[in-house]
Amino acid sequence: MKQKGFDYLKKITAVDYTDRIEVLYFLYDTASAKSDIVKVVLNPTDPAVPSVLRLYKSADWYERELAEMFGVKITGRRTKRLLLEKWNGVDAPLRKSFVWGSDYKKSGAD
């Protein structure tokens, strides 16, 4: 995609459809103002995508966020540190299986 002129990665995000996880890459061409979306469909049991950090530096924080919020493994990158560091790395809070507020009860904070 980068060879086609898409030199700007706007955002990486994911959507959990419960039967599948879609990882979306929003690409943009600053010269011609064209945009495109690359969609990767993953199996929800053990999702993993290769890192695009070598092509786009903007992927760095987005990939860490993806790993933290959706439990999607990012293969082939050095920094494994999560982005917000508040989660244990086991719960994936933006998955549909994660119920809003359940971590609050679990932590026993009142």
Binding site: K10, K11, T13, V15, S58, D60
Partner: peptide, 25 residues
């Protein structure tokens, strides 16, 4: 940028691209 998957009663997923996030990166 907002990427939204709408549903009947409430949005099924909203993804936000916040400009300051990537500027800080």
């Amino acid at each position: 940028m907002i990427y939204m998957i709408p549903d009947k009663q409430r949005p099924a997923r909203i993804s936000l691209r916040s400009p300051a996030f990537i500027n800080l990166a």
